[in-house]
Design a protein around this nucleic acid. Structure first.
Lengths: 190, 190
DNA sequence: CGACGAAACGGATGAGTCATCCGTTTGTGG
DNA sequence: CCACAAACGGATGACTCATCCGTTTCGTCG
């Protein structure tokens, strides 16, 4: 099972780097690899070796959030009412993007550069397809709404919510919920 | 009326700079003042004198689009049916943002740095308040929808549409229209 | 337990970008 | 036509970015 013959100082540094990356992303700061190195107390080259580009680091940072989303989706799939499951999951998607700024670019950029992330995205996509299929078959969606519409819409909602002052996470969350209500209203069958 | 004692070579250069800026913005490229100078055949200092920051140039670039929006709003205000006027204007807002990438940051950043832009934004906001007030008073809006919701929602729609491939403006426009339909559906009274 | 090879480290460094300063040019009013 | 002021432009120093390579550390094998 040891698929990674990785030295333990390497994994330690990797952890540190990701941790610093997470903080930067959470602050909405641009992820500058050079600064990450300094803050993590490692050499610049170490950062670049693990993550050739800022995007790669962002994806690694988002793995936790992605896994949490997958768990949420799995729980949603177990629910009885399709619409409730669907809605609750979308709430989770929006909340997660607001809590973790690294998530939006990963969700909306399917051409994932990191293999690990690609696998998670596939899993998430698969679960979501199930959820969507159920509401769709139950006739709960307005005509013309497709599966492909959902990701852009969710990312757009998160974007809208982020127009709220950055220093007020509560206002952002409330805005996200509100805009999501609007969109859900808009895609629901009458 | 000569409010600007500006030398005519200065206005010529200014025009050139804005023109180059427009092209860059349209390509979605980051506006780098140094590059703008080179492309405009002008010294770097000239660019910085006219526009201290990229943001300032972006605002200047967006003036045309803003004026077009204002004209559209004025036309909309003359219409009879409040909802039609409202909807058509929002279509214009989304289309304009897709056609002119410089517009989104200006619309969603009220703390305008350029006085000229501030004035236009105020005018636009005033017209839009009228349009919104009419649909609202006509009872055409779902409860809980406020004037303040509209700008974020429109910017979010434009964002969603921009997730479409950059090289296919038609697909973007179609997506924008589609997402706008969803949101309009969501904010409409039943 | 000691030594060897490979993997990882880290900082010095060259390429590239940004924005300012100041000597020169150009337009305008008398 | 002249003089002054406004505008110009590019050289330049500060800064950021990402790579390269000599050094250190880990894990293994005799």
């Amino acid at each position: 099972m040891a698929a990674s013959p990785l030295r333990k100082d390497a994994v330690r540094n990797r952890r540190r780097i990701i941790e610093v990356g997470r903080e930067l992303v959470a602050d909405g700061a641009p992820v500058q690899l050079n600064e990450v190195a300094r803050a993590a107390g490692v050499g610049v080259a170490t950062v670049y070796r693990h993550f050739p580009t800022p995007q790669a680091l962002i994806e690694a940072v988002s793995v936790d959030g992605l896994e949490a989303l997958i768990r949420a989706a799995e729980r949603a799939v177990d629910r009885d009412d399709p619409w409730t499951a669907f809605r609750d999951f979308l709430v989770g998607i929006v909340d997660a993007q607001l809590a973790d700024a690294a998530l939006s670019p990963v969700l909306s950029a399917p051409q994932a550069a990191l293999p690990g992330t690609a696998h998670l995205l596939e899993r998430l996509s698969s679960l979501f397809t199930t959820l969507f299929g159920r509401v769709s078959e139950a006739g709960r969606l307005a005509p013309g709404i497709t599966l492909a519409d959902m990701t852009p819409l969710m990312c757009g909602i998160a974007y809208s919510a982020r127009l709220q002052p950055a220093d007020d996470p509560q206002a952002r969350a409330a805005a996200g919920r509100h805009y999501l209500d609007v969109v859900l209203n808009g895609i629901r069958a009458r």
